[in-house]
Design a protein around this nucleic acid. Structure first.
Lengths: 340, 340
DNA sequence: CCTGGCACTCGACTCTAGCGAGTGCCAGTC
DNA sequence: GACTGGCACTCGCTAGAGTCGAGTGCCAGG
């Protein structure tokens, strides 16, 4: 039951018109606005087939057609070409990202930029710790029994954590500890540190040992388990455009989902190397987001992937330009981070 | 034109009922649900006066009355008593905040807790840098011409920033630099650092000077001007409760305002020492928030104030318990930070 | 296989009428 | 003078009826 060429053209026209007008599109409008070279009646027949196949549907008898999730999927996969960015957009990206002074700044600017360009909700993951390497570890004495551990990663991320020592520790020992952990850990990828940390503990004996034991558990906790990923979000106000027609009237579940870091990570974090990922409506595993589409990708210098970024919007979105924008922004950010 | 005691009781009853039911309240309901000891007709006369004075209004002729911003104001100032928290709520606060491992964690937990307890949008400012003191400055060489500057404040905040040096610098010089800046700056409040930084530059001569000049500008920028304040936000999904009746139907302007850090700081940051601040509807300087009320206060150990926190909700909110919750959370957080 | 024609459907909109909560006013009572 | 009961009135809300029109499905003919 193949769809011939014209039927595909019809589907494409329906998607494009619906995205543009936000209203169900009928056969007459369709032949008027696109050069299909056939009569409305013919188009109607095609539409009947498309509907039977599940690509479009009627909101109610005798109204125009609206694409289904499946219809969008086909559109994205086979009927659309990624729209090149306008020079103005390219310039906007460059201007926006130039002048970022540190990682926080880069991430914040990126997420705002993405929200602004796509006019949707933007999500950016900080460079994943697991994929970073240790650049430096610093131990700052807070009191005789407390240290502040600061880890600086090569991606620019800085994580800190308070260490409660089992007993008082002289300043010289702190210096020794610092040197020890730096010697062993600097340069290694965070994902690879656990065995090294273990080895460190085994290696140390004497007065330093108890402190090292506590330090090592904190190291493992901070660097590997907890909190490992961070996320920035922007553009939630964009959910209100389209006046509640999208999202079947309730922003509630979407806002709820967007507040859960875990959910966002699932959304953005599962990166297949440098591929664009488009999840349309029901394809989303997260129930609260079944009414939305998510366009995401990984970013990083060259082919390595440091983290993910993307946007969340109505299924009725302009996929070609959204995809183009997400891709372009990801590239720029990757390049930017490569400079560090 | 004084309001006698009964009129005030009527106003209070109107506010309480309207907050509870979300519907305009009429004279009959009022005498039924509150022991006013008079007839509906009398209450009607009182309501007429209250309306004339601008404390309540009718959405349309022949519907119940609704409090105006002015009415809420009177209610908050003179007619309500702060509701003590339930033991369950106290326990929730303790349980939620115990186990926070660092400042980020404390702030995130606090903001979520506040959103959950008040069922509104919560905003928490990180401890203000201007009110913190320098605990330690660290310089980590990234390359021969680049340093990472890490500043640890006594409030637990950690700020980092990349420093692009004018020329290559030997490792020993980095150590000297580090020692110099730490000697001069550790222990001083950030607000007081600028003259000291200036003095530092003047003091140094020779090979170290150019590096110190760059470093000093970065120090000033990072610590004083830029980025100075950070903010956490949670509970935006709560805006959707009350099904669009609040906020005259559009969340748009509110979501927009909440994304602007500057706006949030204005909201939360202007703390008068340890006082609760309640801004109702039109009293808000920020246009986009004219349809909301903001309850905020400062927090910090003892009487010192490190930052602000608060909630944003519909003018039609339960002021007594919201105020109680915000105050309680602020106290707990203050105590918690005192332990560092 | 495509097309023009035609009957049909059904949501959107308008209009009307009835209901009822709630009011303002007034005359009467304590 | 303050309060009350009674009463006419207002006006938003809802339901039902009627109309309009975009859009469809189907069919017969090219």
């Amino acid at each position: 039951m193949g769809l011939d060429d014209r039927k595909l053209r019809v589907l494409r026209a329906i998607v494009e018109d619906y995205v543009a007008t936000q209203e169900p599109v009928g056969s007459k409008m369709l032949v008027e606005r696109h050069q299909l070279g056939v009569s409305p009646a013919t188009v109607r027949n095609d539409m009947a087939v498309l509907e039977e196949e599940g690509y479009i549907r009627q909101p109610h008898t005798s109204a125009g057609r609206v694409p289904t999730d499946r219809g969008y999927r086909l559109f994205v996969d086979r009927l659309s070409r990624v729209k090149p960015l306008t020079p103005a957009e390219r310039r906007a990206i460059e201007r926006f990202l130039v002048g970022a002074v540190d990682l926080d700044d880069v991430v914040h600017r990126t997420v705002r930029l993405l929200a602004q360009l796509t006019r949707q909700v933007a999500v950016v993951q900080y460079p994943s710790l697991a994929r970073s390497s240790v650049r430096h570890l610093e131990l700052v004495p807070i009191s005789t029994t407390r240290l502040m551990l600061v880890m600086i990663a090569d991606t620019g991320r800085v994580e800190q954590r308070l260490v409660e020592l089992p007993g008082p520790i002289p300043p010289d020992d702190v210096i020794d500890l610092r040197q020890l952990v730096n010697e062993k850990l600097v340069g290694t990828r965070l994902a690879d540190t656990p065995p090294l940390v273990q080895a460190l503990v085994d290696e140390v004996s004497g007065a330093l040992r108890p402190a090292m034991v506590t330090l090592s558990t904190v190291l493992l906790e901070t660097l590997v388990e907890r909190h490992e990923e961070r996320i920035a979000l922007a553009g939630t106000a964009n959910l209100t455009r389209g006046g509640l027609l999208d999202f079947q009237g309730s922003l509630r579940p979407i806002l709820e989902a967007l507040e859960e870091e875990v959910v966002l990570l699932k959304l953005i974090g599962e990166v297949e190397p440098s591929a664009m990922r488009v999840r349309i409506g029901d394809e989303n595993e997260i129930d609260n987001l079944r009414a939305t589409s998510v366009v995401s990708t990984g970013y990083g210098p060259g082919v390595t992937i440091l983290g993910g970024l993307g946007v969340v919007g109505p299924t009725r979105m302009d996929y070609p330009s959204t995809i183009a924008t997400v891709r372009a922004v990801a590239r720029y950010v990757g390049d930017l981070l490569a400079q560090n």
